[in-house]
Design a protein around this nucleic acid. Structure first.
Lengths: 173, 173
DNA sequence: CCGCTTGTTCGGCTCATCTCGAACGAACGA
DNA sequence: TCGTTCGTTCGAGATGAGCCGAACAAGCGG
């Protein structure tokens, strides 16, 4: 029966989305909801998602909100005049990953970089103390690496996946 | 007093390491332990780490093990013949990030890719069913993007931070 | 106006995780 | 040999997150 095969294949992918969601700091339920929406024919309402996933209505409501907030899902409110809210998955996966890169990667790296720079500027200038010189070197190393990383993340979030791939494949050290 | 300033600056950086640790799926204590080791003059033993961080001995024991397992810390066992175990931070931050990229990023992406490919091959060939064609397209899109991503992660984990930066800065679309 | 459906919010339950203290095994020095 | 120090392991307590059911607000149709 091909219907069962299709469901099985779909289920496999959705399960891997559950795992991915955890990696990105979301819940497994968020991964599943996104997966169901990803394969859905059109936007789905909350009751439909409840039917499809088995989660409680309140869970679906909360999770869809966070999914919407982080940009993985678009909220198509009240199409057709009804009060019914419908959700559609952002199906461009690279776009989603770019968003993660910006919202998590970039923010995280730049926050760290700020902390490092601030620490560096607050270190006393006393070059006679070995301990201070020692710390200064350590912090400097950190800063240099993080500056590179921040720039890499920034640039990476501006290219498409295939462009990135090309850029790295063409690069000769 | 410059001693206080130095401690403050160090504390700032360590706190940002605590946050980073959380992002990488570790605990705050792991971030702090790593930070203390990062600035330490030499390898530290567990009692010294207890003294420095205020954590219980058992906590330090457990956390240092996971830090060692993921490669952020090296275990210098029994130097000088003593039973005392000493820990040293892997101070090359980019090396650490590369490891994260490989162990988490690459593994995660490739696992997902495998799941997608498997799903694709298990989808029935029945082209008369719209639903199947529909799913096949969806899965194909996923696969193409993830193939690019997997390659990008693989390549990225082979270059240094500055090389990566250069590769992206030089790239003209 | 009333019933029905939809979506949100709130409190509570469960389960996992982090941390601790205590107990234990091991090695070293006196 | 005995006491001390070090590192690991175990069970327990606390904290937080995820999920649920119930109650509530908001529209819509009869």
């Amino acid at each position: 029966m091909t219907e069962g095969d299709r469901d099985l294949a779909r289920e496999r992918v959705i399960e891997s989305m559950e795992r991915s969601a955890e990696v990105y700091g979301l819940t497994r339920s968020a991964g599943r909801l996104y997966g169901v929406l990803y394969f859905a024919d059109g936007p789905l309402s909350i009751p439909e998602l409840v039917e499809e996933t088995g989660y409680a209505k309140s869970t679906v409501s909360n999770v869809t909100r966070t999914l919407t907030r982080v940009g993985l899902v678009r909220r198509r409110s009240s199409e057709g005049g009804g009060r019914r809210v419908r959700f559609a998955a952002e199906r461009d996966v690279w776009f989603v990953l770019q968003d993660v890169l910006r919202q998590y990667g970039q923010r995280e790296v730049e926050t760290t970089l700020r902390a490092i720079r601030r620490a560096e500027s607050e270190l006393p200038d006393d070059d006679s103390l070995d301990a201070v010189v020692h710390d200064r070197e350590r912090v400097e190393d950190l800063r240099e690496t993080y500056e590179d990383v921040a720039e890499v993340v920034r640039l990476a979030s501006e290219y498409s996946a295939s462009e990135l791939r090309e850029a790295l494949e063409e690069y000769e050290r």
